[in-house]
Design a protein around this nucleic acid. Sequence first.
DNA 1: GTATATTTTATAATAATTCAAATATGCAAT
DNA 2: ATTGCATATTTGAATTATTATAAAATATAC
Lengths: 138, 138
Amino acid sequence: MSLNSADLEKKIRDARLRPTRQRLALAELLYAHGNRHVTAERLHSEVMETGVSVSLATIYNNLHQFTSAGLLREVVVDSSRSYFDTNVTPHHHFFHEQTGALEDIPKGALSVQNIPSLPEGTEISSVDVIVRVTTPRR
Amino acid sequence: MSLNSADLEKKIRDARLRPTRQRLALAELLYAHGNRHVTAERLHSEVMETGVSVSLATIYNNLHQFTSAGLLREVVVDSSRSYFDTNVTPHHHFFHEQTGALEDIPKGALSVQNIPSLPEGTEISSVDVIVRVTTPRR
DNA sequence: GTATATTTTATAATAATTCAAATATGCAAT
DNA sequence: ATTGCATATTTGAATTATTATAAAATATAC
Ligand SMILES: [Mn+2]
Ligand SMILES: [Mn+2]
Ligand SMILES: [Zn+2]
Ligand SMILES: [Zn+2]
C-alpha cells in the first residue's frame, strides 16, 4: 500500500521512463501514500511545496506519460479540468460538484446493466459511471 | 418532433429570452429537426453557413442561457471541449473516442444498480453513464 | 416614439494544455 | 572512468477553448 523510494524508481524504470528528479518527486506524491485523484494544478502546487521546482508543462507531460504507461487513468468529470486517478483498476466515481472532490465507488458495488447494442462497427473501450452529488444548502 | 418558426419563438419567449435574429437562427439549428449534440464551434460553423452572422461569444452566451433555462444540458465526455445536448430528459450516452460523436442511450434500456451510500451530507444531482467506444483498426 | 432593459460583439483576459528549443540522461566505445 | 552521441526530458513560449468587459445595437414596454 505504501511505496518507498526504491519501489518508486522501479515503477518508473519498469514503465521505460527515466527516474529524473522531477519524475521521482511526482511519483512520490502520487504513489507513496495510497490511491489519489489529482488535477495537474493540484499536483503542481504540492510538488512546489516540497521544494522541488517543476514546470506545469512537465506535470502535464508526466501525467500523460504515466497514463500511457498504465500507471494512471484520466477521469473526465469536469469540462474545465482533467483529473488523474492512481487507481487504474475498473471502478466508478462520486463527484462532488461544489468541492470538485472525486471519490471511488468500489468495484462490485455498483453495476451497469443492459447496455444496448453498440453503434455499428464499434467496440467498448470503457464504461464510466459518474454519480454527481451536491451538498444541499439547508 | 419537428418545430416550426412559431414554436421556436414560443420556446424562446417561454424561457424569458428575446427572439433575436441570432437566437432564432441557433434555435432553428438546435431544435427544428430533432435532438442533437453539438459543440460551440460546430454550432458556430453551422449558423455561419446559413448566412446568419453570429459571433462566437454569442454562441457561448446562448448555449449557457439555454442551459440555465433547461432547454439544453451540458454533457461532459471530453475534457477539451464542451458538448450540449438538446435532449434534456434523463438518458445516457455512447461516445465515440475517435470521431467525437455522441449518441443517446435511450432511457429504460440501460440501468445502474446498487449505488452505494453517498458521501456524508450529500444528495444525488445526476447519474451519468458514458459508454466509450472505438472503431478497432483492423 | 422614447425610455429601459436585454443582447450582441469586438476585443481583452484567462486558464488549461501543447509545442519546440534547450538540457539532461543512458549507453556504448575508448 | 571519460567521452560522444542518440534519445528522453524539461520548460518557456505559444496555442486553444472559453470567459469577461464594456460599448453599440436591438427589442420591448409604456
Ligand atoms: Mn512521503
Ligand atoms: Mn430547417
Ligand atoms: Zn478513482
Ligand atoms: Zn444525449
